[in-house]
């Protein structure tokens, strides 16, 4: 491959180069440096695209509310927001609030789980998934840690997944049923607990990590058995 062709390919899709282009970059320092700059610029583009997202119009944005015009919808949204606020206050005072805290404490007590980026032993991963009653799509991200952990009196799958946002912890909580997505920021971690299957799935990353895409990929990848 010529440098010109490499620049054309890398300039269009610097994150997904064909094999030929990757080989070329390994043997051409100038093109490797060019690729590094392109990828750095792409990071800037991605950061710029992450404009602030307005608050949800309700706890279930997908729930059908048919025939409302914008003004009526805003009034309804305001009442829902008020309801959510009251609900949140009640939630904070209830035993449920300890779920996020318990998750963070569990993750914090297993720092070694986040240490290694290399793929975990495939047999171990398979055993953890089987024990947890779930299956993961074969093309899911690299699982670098898998363990069947005791959590709130149950044995649950505790996975660490290597993503483009860094390592992310996934805990499959078959017995923790939620009615809405819960987000939390505690002790240096950001996380979401998402209703899924018979229970929920917790996705936890370092503070400030944008977990939206990871969460959607996890939800798409998990099959409950």
């Amino acid at each position: 491959m010529q440098c010109l062709e490499f620049h054309r390919l890398a300039g269009a899709d610097p994150q997904h180069l064909p094999e030929q282009a990757r080989v070329h970059a390994e043997g051409c320092p100038q093109c490797a440096e060019h690729l590094r700059r392109l990828r750095a610029f792409d990071e800037r583009i991605r950061a710029a695209l992450l404009v602030p997202v307005p608050a949800e119009r309700g706890p279930r944005a997908a729930t059908p509310v048919i025939g409302l015009d914008r003004r009526r919808w805003m009034a309804l949204a305001a009442s829902i927001v008020a309801g959510v606020l009251v609900g949140t206050l009640l939630w904070v005072g209830s035993p449920r609030d300890s779920l996020a805290r318990d998750l963070v404490e569990h993750v914090a007590h297993e720092p070694q789980a986040l240490a290694s980026p290399v793929p975990a032993d495939a047999d171990t991963v398979a055993q953890v998934l089987e024990r947890g009653g779930i299956r993961l799509r074969p093309d899911f991200e690299t699982v670098s840690y898998a363990n069947s952990c005791e959590f709130r009196g149950r044995t649950v799958p505790h996975l660490v997944v290597q993503t483009d946002r860094g390592p992310v912890t996934v805990m499959v909580l078959r017995n923790e049923k939620l009615t809405a997505v819960t987000h939390f920021d505690e002790q240096g971690y950001s996380g979401s607990i998402v209703p899924a299957g018979p229970g929920s799935i917790a996705i936890i990353g370092a503070a400030g990590t944008d977990l939206a895409q990871v969460t959607s990929r996890v939800l798409e990848a998990v099959t409950w058995l």
């Binding site: 992450l50 404009v51 997202v53 949800e56 944005a61 997908a62 809405a180 979401s192 998402v194 939206a212």
Partner: peptide, 20 residues
């Protein structure tokens, strides 16, 4: 329930895509 969860998770990127 699964669909609502999926939409909740995808909503930020949906909004951003719609904004751009």
């Amino acid at each position: 329930s699964a669909f609502a969860s999926l939409c909740d998770a995808l909503r930020p990127d949906m909004f951003r895509f719609a904004f751009w």
